[in-house]
Amino acid sequence: MSANGAAPAVEVRDVSRWYGDVVAVNGVSFALEPGVTSLLGPNGAGKSTLLHLMAGFLRPSAGEVRVLGEPAFGSPDVYRRIGLVPEREAVYPFLTGRDFVLLSARLHGLPDPGAAADRALREVEMTDAAERATGGYSKGMKQRVKIAAGLVHEPDVLLLDEPFNGADPRQRLQMTEMLRRMADEGRTVLFSSHILEEVERLGENVLVVVAGRLAASGDYRAIRQLMTDRPHSFTIRSSDDRALARALVVEESVTGVDLADGALRVRATELAAFTTLAPRAAQSAGATLFELRPDDESLESVFQYLVRR
């Protein structure tokens, strides 16, 4: 249950899914609340299987998947509140973009499907190309028209499988803004992506799946803080790197110091403690700090750490 007592938007409880002898997802549990969450993992980690389980297109071999309190599998009514954007590029090539989104609006039984389709197409900036057959669309255009079809009924939960595939940088930016806006409106947005830049831009909440298991979930910066077995790495530039290195190496929380390529690289056990320690050490060494940059606080570093474990 969430803080207000309502069921989580998406609840995955002890879920496993296997195909014959192959275990694709193994004992995964998490709950999603409104906001943007990214689903990350290397190829074959089980991301698509998890998304398909949440979208009601796979039955769990064990455990339970509920969306807005309803079982995800075998409940077509749940699609009134779920929007799904599949990874596969195929759309109906003989339909125009508008007809494709209109079909989705009509199948949802919306009272004014035409207006809903036009609004969704505006949302993804596809109004100008809406009257062209989707068969002639670029990969990025197909992606956007698929998103328009997925959000035409203004769902509470939007599940997107690799939505940034094929989109150019401007389209990616526009898409991230749109997804963030949807999250700000109180919707639950979950998307899988390989493009960590976009993931980082969209928000902090991640689910990291490795070899079918949930390796980590939550704010990736908090996840990084919990990786006590991985010292934090910093690059420092100062007026006297050598003196500063001497001052730092004696500190208990500093586990390594390297002087190379005109910069000082330091490994420390605690991020917060080091940010106060470094200026103090510089002062005692008589050096002026020009730059203090954490090297491995990015999502990519966190992801790499989790995947290599």
Partner: peptide, 15 residues
């Protein structure tokens, strides 16, 4: 086969 069935099956319509 081509994956487009998902667009119909992800609708609130009895199968």
């Amino acid at each position: 086969e081509d994956g487009t069935a998902v667009y119909l099956l992800s609708k609130p319509i009895p199968r």
